[in-house]
């Protein structure tokens, strides 16, 4: 028998996880529905505010939709795959993380598999659908680079959020009750990226848009796709840099994670 690939093993662990969850069918259906509703509400909120002044940050409906949909697609995809890794703190508190470290697989990979929540698939599908619609209605001068960029960018955005989820969860190795702090950047990041970055002001805008890189999830990519200049004056070539920023974020998160695992103090007996 050929040796099974690493991916196959993870798939099996994942399937086992889904089978365990499927035992609670009714609440699964309800949560699937409710999470889609929440996602829809997030987008609806953007447009409720849009309707007040007939624009957001000087952008029209099509650009705003593109940004909000890109943010939703990125976040929901990340949330589907990694949104529950912050359960690490529960695993650490109960000492369950030990058993992940005792298996011949990557601890992070296993953590992803055991915290995977299928109910979030609804949100991801909704987000990606909305993004497709937004691309169709947006005023984009299609060419090959833009097409490739449009395909890649929800996934780089998702990878960016994944890095945040991992980094946020890693804090639990030192500070178990840190959950809410991570929320400020994950859920806060989702809210931040749903709106054009030029709506924010002062140091807060610079810190989140450029310093932490949230501008590269939806705002700059949307500008790159529609070919619009940035009202904040960030040069045009930088709008295309989302994949690079994401790569940097992933590297940082990976290094941080490894550092965290080395500092794991297995509690309890």
């Amino acid at each position: 028998m050929a040796e099974p690939g690493r991916l196959t093993i993870y798939t099996r662990v994942l399937r086992a996880q889904i089978r365990s969850q499927a035992q609670y069918r009714l609440s699964f259906a309800f949560e699937l529905f409710a999470s889609m509703l929440t996602n829809a509400l997030d987008i609806a909120t953007v447009f409720v505010l849009f309707s007040v002044g007939g624009g957001l940050g000087g952008f029209g409906a099509r650009e705003v939709l593109l940004m909000a949909a890109l943010s939703a697609a990125s976040f929901a995809t990340a949330d589907l795959t990694m949104g529950n890794v912050d359960n690490l703190r529960v695993y650490i508190r109960r000492g369950v993380f030990d058993s992940l470290l005792l298996r011949p697989l990557s601890a992070l990979g296993q953590l992803m598999a055991v915290t995977f929540a299928l109910r979030r698939v609804g949100r991801a599908v909704l987000g990606l659908t909305l993004y497709t619609v937004a691309l169709c209605v947006a005023d984009i001068d299609w060419d090959i680079p833009r097409l490739l960029f449009a395909i890649v960018v929800p996934f780089t955005g998702a990878a960016f959020f994944c890095s945040l989820f991992v980094a946020g969860a890693t804090v639990a190795f030192w500070w178990i009750e840190s959950g809410e702090v991570a929320n400020a950047f994950t859920y806060g990041g989702r809210d931040f990226t749903s709106y054009p970055s030029n709506m924010y002001g002062g140091w807060f805008r610079d810190l989140f848009t450029l310093g932490l890189g949230f501008g590269f999830v939806a705002y700059f990519p949307a500008l790159a796709l529609t070919g619009q200049p940035d009202p904040l004056g960030v040069p045009g070539w930088l709008h295309w840099c989302s994949p690079l920023v994401t790569l940097a974020a992933m590297c940082l998160a990976a290094v941080f994670w490894r550092f965290g695992v080395r500092h794991y103090r297995s509690t309890g007996s």
């Binding site: 002044g53 007939g54 957001l56 000087g58 806060g188 809210d191 709506m199």
Partner: peptide, 25 residues
Amino acid sequence: AGAFTNTVFGFLRCYILLSVAATAG
């Protein structure tokens, strides 16, 4: 941790609403 998160969201929402207000007169 909770107060920190509330503060981040405070900045976020406040800027958004103020920007909306500026657009809407």
